Computed example of a mutant assay.
Amino acid sequence: MSTLKLDDFLPYRLSLASNAVSDAVATAYRKLFGLRIPEWRLVTVLAEGGAMSQQALCGRTRMDKVTVSRAAIALAERGLIARAANPDDQRSHLLTLTLDGIALYEQVAPKALELERRMFDVFSPAEREQLLAMLKRVEAAAGGLDDDR
């Protein structure tokens, strides 16, 4: 029988690493821009992909409906996103960045890249590429587990 050693259990180590990175990023975004991680994710996804419904944002960010809704409300209250009727689905709205939202993204994106650089500078460019490829494979494998349930 195998013995589980938590410190060597890959899902646990991945969770610890993810939490450490997320905490560092959250602290930086909160201090610099007054943003929580879900809000920053919405701003970034909307900047990259244009107008989207909240359902599409849930899929793209892998955040639940409540988290996306709260982030959208907070961003709308700050005037960073706007809601418009969805011509393809009258039951939903499309969210888009306002000019202020675009300006915020243009300020935050370079800071995010700098934070990433500082955090992952301990790896060579080849190691960073390899880590990214492995993380994508882990995500795909985890998604396959969802199909098995």
Score class of each variant (00 low, 15 high):
L4E: 15
P11M: 09
A20T: 11
V21W: 09
S22H: 10
Y29T: 15
F33W: 07
F33D: 01
G34L: 03
L35G: 03
R36L: 14
P38F: 03
E39D: 00
W40I: 11
R41F: 10
V43N: 03
L46I: 02
A47Q: 02
Q54Y: 05
Q54M: 10
T61I: 01
D64W: 07
V66C: 07
R70L: 13
L75N: 08
A76V: 09
A76D: 10
E77Q: 15
L80E: 09
L80G: 09
L80N: 08
I81F: 08
A82P: 00
N86V: 02
N86C: 09
P87N: 01
D89S: 00
S92V: 03
L94H: 04
L95W: 00
T98P: 00
G101Y: 00
I102V: 13
I102D: 08
V108N: 02
V108L: 01
V108K: 01
K111P: 09
R118P: 00
F120D: 04
D121V: 03
D121H: 05
S124P: 11
P125K: 01
A126K: 03
A126F: 10
A126D: 12
L131F: 05
L131H: 03
A133I: 06
M134L: 12
R137F: 07
E139Q: 13
G143N: 02
G143D: 05
G144L: 12
L145W: 06
R149P: 09
